[in-house]
Structure formats: C-alpha cells, structure tokens
C-alpha cells in the first residue's frame, strides 16, 4: 500500500515519488492531451502511475476543486398506492476533492437515494449529478460503494472478495493478491483471508467490504450508513479505523448516516437534510483539527457544541411539523 500513502492530501510540492492513479486523473483536467493519452494508457494497465512520470505537484495547483456536483436533483418514487412520492426535492450540492462529507438526516429523507444517484445506481427524475464535469449515467469504478448490508460475494473468501475488483480490471492475479493481502491487513483482518463471509461477524464483514472497495482504487468512496447495522462498540472501532485509513490518502468520501455524533466525528462538512420531501436544510463546516482522536474530541467543547447544535436543529424541525 505504499503507493497510496503518499497520495493526494499532502501538499508537499515534490511529493510525487510514488503518485497514485487518482491523482493522475486529476491532472487530466489541466494538462495537455498527450498526457491524457498516457493517463488513458495507465488506466488500461491499471497499475498505479509510476513515479518518474509525474514530477509536477498536482494538488497545490488546484486546491479543493469540485469533484462531484449535484445539480437540482429531484427524485420521485411511485408508492405501492400508485401515488407519487417526492423523495428528493431540488438538491444542489458540490463536493470538493479530498473532502469527507456526511449526509445527515432522519430515516426516509432520501439521503441514501442521493448517494445512489451519485453512484449511478439510480437515475434522478430530474436534474443531474456530475463527477469531474461528466454527467453520471451509470456505476463506474471511479465511485466505490460500501453498503450497510455489506453485499459481500458469499461464494468468495475474504481474499477472493477483495481481489474481485482488481481482477475484473485486468490486474494480474499475483499482483492483485499482493495488493489485496496488504489491504486486508490494513483493515485489521490478517489471518482471515480464507474465511467465507458467513463465517465473519458484522464488523468484520464491513471491514472486508471496505477493503474490497478500496482495492479497485475508486476516486470517491460512497458509504451508505456503513456502520448502521453494527453494535455500538464495533461501530466506534470502525469509525476510528476508517479515519485512520482515510488519513493515509484522503480520498473523497460521501458518507450517509443518521447519527449526529458519527457525522461530526468523521466529517469536514455535514449536509443536514430534512424529511418529505428530502431537502438540504443546511451545510455545516466542521472545523475540528485532524487527525482526530476520539478520546480528545469527545472532551473538546467545539465538538460538543457541533453535536448539540445539530441535534437542536433537528428537534426544532420535528416540533415545527406535525407529530408522527
């Protein structure tokens, strides 16, 4: 995993000695075509771009560029009673490269639907979502989902699951296996490589799911209440581990949750949504230092204030509406 440790988030001007593929893609926006062609070639071979080819610092040139743009997206579902239900109403949101953004809201506010639209799994009724300026028309390996339901391949072992994505993209078996073993170790599952998903606990399954998604090096992680099905203890451990992993390459993360603590603890930005129809209520920047340590943060008055403020805002909106 060496290649990923020196990835994007760092602003070191000469940090390019082992640059990472996604960074290479970022370059495509600002560099001439011949480099683009080379990038395309790199993508075909899927090996992370080699050091010497990228000596120019990427990030300092284009700080905090938008990677995902959601433009006036609305989503209408037909309910079983054949009535139209407006799940999302006129959502516009821009997500910056390398940001950890949480979408926070009560259940049924359409926050997962919004994530699925970015994933390309669901087509919006109106409006559009874009990644790097390209309209999203379907799923792709640049956006890696992690679901609450894990959705692991049950007939594959832990190693088989993690290797699946790289193998699918043509990485040679030996290489895919080495990368996958390193990832499995990184998520703390060394020794479980040959276990089948049904032999793992919920927390372990979610670790596998995370490793499986990281394995094909998506530019954006789409996490759909990933820790929602886990017990409180496992949940905090996974939050900590996710932050540690994220600190290594600061991939863009879109994280859906209904837990205020979780959203504040993890995110740079919290998007608060309201229910029926799903609308963005407010976007709150979480200005807390990183790397974040749970034991320090819980005692930090700024953290506490964020949590309390956000909870109060949700309470107010509940009182304003009819009781249900």
């Amino acid at each position: 995993m060496k290649a990923r440790q020196n990835g994007r988030g760092s602003n070191d001007a000469l940090d390019g000695c082992e640059n990472d593929d996604p960074s290479g893609r970022l370059l495509a926006k600002v560099v001439p075509l011949n480099v683009r062609a080379r990038e395309a070639k790199d993508r075909m071979t899927v090996v992370p771009a080699r050091s010497s080819e990228w000596m120019r610092p990427v990030n300092s040139q284009e700080p905090a560029s938008a990677i995902i743009e959601i433009d006036r997206v609305s989503q209408v579902f037909q309910t079983s009673a054949r009535k139209d239900h407006l799940a999302l109403s006129d959502i516009s949101l821009t997500i910056e490269e390398g940001a950890f953004v949480s979408i926070l809201g009560p259940s049924g506010c359409g926050k997962s639907t919004l994530l699925y639209i970015v994933g390309g799994f669901v087509r919006p009724t109106s409006g559009m979502a874009k990644i790097r300026g390209h309209t999203i028309t379907g799923p792709g390996p640049d956006r890696g989902p992690v679901f609450q339901e894990f959705a692991l391949f049950p007939w594959k072992t832990v190693l088989g699951n993690v290797m699946y994505g790289p193998r699918q993209q043509g990485v040679r078996t030996a290489e895919a296996e080495a990368q996958s073993r390193a990832l499995i170790e990184m998520v703390g599952l060394k020794g479980f490589e040959n276990f089948y998903p049904k032999e793992l606990s919920g927390g372990m399954k979610q670790r596998v799911a995370l490793a499986r998604t990281l394995a094909y090096q998506p530019e954006v992680l789409l996490m759909d209440e990933p820790f929602g099905a886990l017990d409180a203890h496992t949940r905090t451990r996974l939050q900590n581990d996710l932050l540690n992993i994220w600190e290594r390459d600061r991939k863009t993360v879109l994280f859906v949750t209904h837990s205020v603590d979780e959203a504040v603890f993890l995110s740079d930005k919290v998007v608060m949504m309201s229910k029926s129809p799903g609308r963005i209520r407010q976007v709150i920047d979480i200005d807390l230092p990183r790397p974040r340590r749970r034991n320090e943060l819980l005692l930090d008055p700024r953290y506490q204030k964020y949590v309390v403020d956000i909870e109060r805002m949700f309470d107010e909106s509940d009182e304003a509406g009819p009781f249900s």
Partner: peptide, 12 residues
C-alpha cells in the same frame, strides 16, 4: 441482493 449487483456494477 440488488446491492451485490451494484457492487459488481461499480467494479465495471
């Protein structure tokens, strides 16, 4: 499971 297929679709 739909999400298993989505995971596959995301892998290309």
């Amino acid at each position: 499971e739909e999400k298993m297929l989505w995971s596959g679709a995301a892998m290309g």
